[in-house]
Amino acid sequence: MSPLNTIHLHRIFDYLDKNGNGFVSVDDLMLLLERIGINVKRVELEQLVGKTTLDSIDFLFFYQSLMIKGNNNDDIVYKVEGEDEILERDLREAFRVFDLNEDGFISCEELQIALSKLGLWDERCGQDCKHMIGVYDSNSDGLLDFDEFKDMMLLTFQT
């Protein structure tokens, strides 16, 4: 199970859509990103989003567009100069959001806290937390290091 699957993304969207009009504004996205420790300028986010509000489908597409598309098949692969370096930097930034004590590992407790901040945690997730880590914990130490986190993110979001 991925920390951010479609169900979770819909829950995030519903959380951000406070007035229930079916749209999330760029300002709402900025608040969410700031809340999880990612600072972005409004102009940059507007350019990335391409509009001032997103419906739920646009929100899912926006999220997916942030992830690397393609795999080793004949799928379309979007390449940008310096993409690998950008991806590595973005993954390290995301890792720091979860590695709350900055020890270089994500524990079950840290995962729970980060998911709570995103509004994705409920009591049913308690056992899933250990499972989420266990799926990608290649050395079976009960923690995710950066390389394991990176593998999880790249495998989870490939199409």
Score class of each variant (00 low, 15 high):
G70L: 07
M153G: 01
V80D: 09
D74I: 12
C108I: 13
E93A: 14
D55K: 03
S140D: 11
E102K: 15
D84I: 08
T156I: 07
K69A: 11
H8F: 06
R96F: 02
K130T: 13
E109W: 01
E148Y: 06
L118V: 08
E88Q: 13
Y136M: 04
N72I: 10
I86A: 14
N39R: 13
D103N: 15
I68W: 00
D55I: 06
N73Q: 10
Y63M: 06
K51T: 13
S140H: 12
C129P: 00
L32T: 07
L33S: 08
E110Q: 11
K18M: 05
R35M: 11
R11W: 02
A114S: 15
E46W: 01
L91C: 08
R96H: 08
S140G: 00
Q158A: 11
F23G: 00
E85Q: 14
I36M: 11
N19V: 15
N72E: 13
L120R: 02
E123C: 06
D141I: 09
L60H: 09
D137H: 03
T156A: 13
L87V: 15
D145T: 05
L9W: 04
R124P: 01
N71M: 03
K51G: 06
L155N: 12
G70R: 03
T52G: 02
G142A: 05
M1L: 11
S65N: 15
N101A: 11
D145W: 04
T156N: 12
G119K: 05
L4T: 10
I86S: 11
E93L: 12
L33H: 02
D151L: 13
L111R: 02
V43A: 11
M67D: 00
K130G: 12
C125G: 00
F13Y: 03
F95L: 04
V24C: 05
L154G: 06
D128L: 06
E34S: 14
L54K: 04
Y63N: 07
S56E: 10
L154D: 04
R124F: 07
V135G: 01
L45G: 07
N5G: 14
V97E: 00
F13N: 02
D122R: 01
D137P: 04
K130F: 14
L9S: 04
L16Y: 01
G20W: 04
L111K: 01
F157E: 02
G126M: 04
D122Q: 05
K69T: 13
F157Q: 01
I133N: 02
H131C: 06
D137E: 03
E85D: 15
K130P: 00
L143M: 14
E83Q: 15
L87E: 10
K117C: 12
R42H: 10
L120W: 01
G142P: 05
I38Y: 04
E88P: 00
V40I: 15
D84S: 10
E81G: 10
M132G: 02
V26Y: 03
E110C: 07
C125H: 04
I106Q: 02
G104V: 06
E123T: 12
S116D: 12
A114R: 02
Q47L: 07
G82N: 10
S138F: 07
L118M: 15
F157T: 14
N73F: 09
Q112Y: 01
G82D: 08
R96I: 08
K117I: 15
L120Q: 03
M152I: 09
L16D: 10
R124S: 14
T52N: 08
S116M: 08
L111G: 02
N39P: 00
D145E: 06
